[in-house]
Design a protein around this nucleic acid. Structure first.
Lengths: 349, 349
DNA sequence: TTGTAAGCGTTATCAT
DNA sequence: ATGATAACGCTTACAA
């Protein structure tokens, strides 16, 4: 209950001053390496700091200096492994620059717009990274009010010149389709996930591009929408078999979860991957490797790093690539029929 | 380069005062709901706040009020999916109490002791959650200096009465082994991961307990150490085959990665799971489900929630369960030979 | 090269 | 029920 807390109060700047006989200004200069301090003085201060175990108080710094050394990150509730890796990248990059990451997930039923806006208002972050799925132009405008840079991961917002880190969805999809065409499969069924999403639309463009290049006639009936889940994948396959007894010869799924669901459904019906059906996914989640699924690799960690880096650059007024597009890579495994063994090969994009 | 930033400075407390003609004290009272304010005044203030779009400045609050509404989390560099889920739990619980999570991963080559200590010193967190793998008693003592509660995830520290959220490793391992014994396999090989770790040692205790209960003679030679990785698992299998042409009839791995590596190695040698070898893992990562691996489920999200909850309780001086131990569950899938199909069953622990 | 002192935006203790 | 005002620990002109 009531613990006698022996308040060993932390050392403060003035403690260091007292200890060294110097002024706050000088000590502050040493700490922030603002130059114009005698080497001997620096040493004296450093020694005192070490001796007292002094660590600058963050709140005071933020209040006085208007900088938090903190980047906020708002994520929607999405597949675990994916954002975990992004976050890792964000944190790694932030850490390299002595920044911290403040997470804010929109857990079920919460509005991520409100979440983001509150975070911006509290003034505890210097920049905001948003994994933007539902947020639009109006949000960006509201956010602009706070004068805090916002970096978008995943897709830019049409008609707005916002900083963003995105994926080359078009080329990624094109690589996958081209690969299947090169296998000789002319009829490729596309399990396209949610066609309302930016990703799906971009990837579809990539597919069409590939078809054109391969001189394959485009057939809209081969595009099957679903949710971006395993269940979506298996349902899509079920739907297919309502109008055909034979499975498609090749399938390209707009994410790995769909692919996994589809493969399960196919196997349940006695069809083998890749012998009866070739399958390619998108994302390259952990399970893709385990299931030997050929897929389009997404450099998730790098997206995180790039986003944090962009944030830090804006904060410090440095020039940077405002609209960054990261490349994908086709990773060849067993499911497309290329490799019989577990080995994998990377097709540079 | 130089953007003309039209500094729309945020509204402050004094702006609200000016707008209402009230003092900072009164406005503060309204904001913090400290009572003793006329209803009419409250309304006046609320209106002004809404009108000005006022959001309390965090740094100032922290500085003046000594509370950050923030929980720091230090993680070592470990398998992605695992901590992602923990973090999700942490954030969910924190969010429920209007707290935020500040992440700090020890990226390669960084000392998490130092990381944690710095975080504690900066005074920007009200509590620290540590996924503690290498940290010991001395760390806890140093941390104690800062007078900030520390919650340990994953293992308690011997000889110290620290708040911790841990797993019932003993029962978990016991469940798995018992299940294999019930299958009739008397010789169960144990791929035990890194025996220096707390987890491995606890799980080994569980195994011995199961053996005793099943009246199976314990044989230390069946315990094979390795790293907690896929490679560790496949190497362990390779080692086995140096002294035997036949595979073990049953294997219990101390995590899923080891199990996956082991299964791969077995299949490469032409042995089938579960027909030739029964395999059980530990953790229940995503891939375990996909690979139909029977495994001991770890309630990762709940661990995160419990940790954040413990943190918040300590902060607010509420009584709580200091040493929390979460239960595991054996999840039956195909790899142990129980279920031929993809179905899974949960064995309550 | 170093020191002085005025904030930064709150909270909280006194008065009133 | 409300108002002054002193912290909180630091940064940063401006002086010296």
């Amino acid at each position: 209950m009531s613990e006698e807390s022996a308040k060993i109060s932390r050392a403060t700047l003035s403690d260091v001053c007292r200890h060294t006989g110097l002024s706050t200004a000088t000590v502050s200069r040493v700490i922030n390496q603002t130059g114009n301090v005698k080497a001997a003085t620096v040493k004296k201060v450093m020694d005192a700091i070490a001796q007292l175990g002094y660590v600058p108080n963050h709140a005071a710094r933020a209040l006085a200096g208007q900088r938090n050394k903190m980047i906020g990150v708002v994520f929607p509730e999405i597949s675990t492994g994916f954002w975990a890796e992004i976050l890792k990248g964000l944190d790694a990059e932030a850490d390299d620059h002595q920044y911290h990451i403040l997470t804010a997930f929109s857990h079920g039923g919460q509005d991520e717009r409100e979440l983001a806006l509150r975070l911006l208002g509290e003034g505890r972050i210097d920049a905001l990274v948003v994994m933007n799925l539902r947020l639009g132009k109006d949000f960006m405008q509201q956010a602009g009010r706070f004068n805090i840079p916002v970096i978008l991961i995943d897709r830019p917002i049409a008609g707005l010149e916002t900083a963003s880190v995105t994926l080359d969805n078009v080329t990624g999809a094109c690589q996958a389709m081209t690969h299947l065409y090169e296998h000789g499969y002319e009829q490729v069924v596309i399990l396209a996930g949610d066609l309302e999403t930016y990703d799906a639309r971009q990837r579809l463009m990539g597919c069409k591009k590939a078809a054109k290049a391969a001189k394959v006639a485009w057939d809209d009936r081969l595009v099957v929408a679903s949710s971006f889940t395993e269940e979506g994948g298996s349902r899509a396959i079920d739907t297919w078999f309502k109008q055909s007894v034979k499975p498609p010869r090749a399938i390209f799924c707009f994410n790995d979860n769909i692919a996994i669901g589809a493969m399960n459904a196919l196997e349940k019906r006695g069809f083998a991957v890749p012998d009866d059906v070739a399958v390619i996914g998108f994302d390259d989640i952990d399970s893709a490797r385990h299931l030997k699924l050929t897929t389009v690799h997404v450099p998730v960690l790098e997206m995180g790093r790039a986003a944090a880096n962009a944030a830090i650059q804006v904060i410090s007024n440095q020039a940077f690539n405002k609209q960054q597009v990261l490349p994908t890579q086709l990773v060849l495994r067993r499911s497309c029929g290329c490799l019989v063994e577990a080995e994998q090969k990377v097709c540079a994009g």
